[in-house]
Design a protein around this nucleic acid. Sequence first.
DNA 1: TTAGGTGCAAATTCTTTGCACCCTG
DNA 2: CAGGGTGCAAAGAATTTGCACCTAA
Lengths: 168, 168
Amino acid sequence: MRILRNWEKHPRMVDDLEVRRRLERFQSVAREAGVKLTHQRLVIFRAVAGSVEHPTAETVYNAVRPEMPTVSLDTVYRTLWLLTDLGLLTTLGPRQGSVRFEANLEKHHHYLCVRCGALRDFDSAELDALPIPSAASRFGRVVSSHVEVRGICAACMQAGGESRRPEA
Amino acid sequence: MRILRNWEKHPRMVDDLEVRRRLERFQSVAREAGVKLTHQRLVIFRAVAGSVEHPTAETVYNAVRPEMPTVSLDTVYRTLWLLTDLGLLTTLGPRQGSVRFEANLEKHHHYLCVRCGALRDFDSAELDALPIPSAASRFGRVVSSHVEVRGICAACMQAGGESRRPEA
DNA sequence: TTAGGTGCAAATTCTTTGCACCCTG
DNA sequence: CAGGGTGCAAAGAATTTGCACCTAA
């Protein structure tokens, strides 16, 4: 059993209405794609859709086991990637070892704590409107862009926090 | 032996003067920190300092072996993390499996190809000056920020590219 | 009914560690 | 010459895969 990181200890929730909206979308997208709506998939998607923490596969696994003690970690992985392929989730690329998933598909930006790895969304109309410099579009087609702000989160400032290898 | 990704096939170089500047900095920082200047460290640092590709540990390993056939992959790892701890390198967090390192410590931004994983720097005075919204600084102290632009790079657009699991 | 989904266990991939020898300072 | 550094091999963590059974449609 791995040591829990700070951000894994304090699950925050997405508001209920939004979760229901995401679940509906899941059901219609899945049906349309001819993908079966299994109990596992529902529960796993709900776990991600209801979290604001950008959980890892293992975090989702832990969140889901009380309700569904027989799931296997590999089903969680397969389901998360399936949901990503269906366009229902987005991944953030591994930070400190593990890929992290999110169900927030709206344009937004990220705050990353380099101490504990906490990763939170924030909105900013001003940043949404950033121009893409030609220095960037020179490399190829541009699909999206967002700002990543790095720092030390309030919890870590206060606690000292278990300092894992930061990524600068 | 893993299949090479597009960006691993076309090593680009940093200009010579800049590499020399970085090597000098390395020597003085290492000396000051009481860290030994071994042949391995020099060669490994030069490999990262001279590349514009944000190489993984394994990419560095391959780049360095012709010159130093007896290095071990774990020495490459230890050296890269040492250099990072000394503040001479920065990491980008793993993308598609592996952590990637860079020696460019100036403020800059990133273009990421979601197909092949190519990751390139670009500069933009305008983006350098972007304001940090209070929605972000609310989470804690802010240390840095940069823009990440995602898209499909020119090589992949043309080639079709081996499509690895993209990170959206 | 039946193809797709799941659980289990084993395999892979990336990275770190323990230990004995080596080389820089 | 002493203590840090290196190479080797083995351990660990994260993720994927093969296979036989199960279940939603």
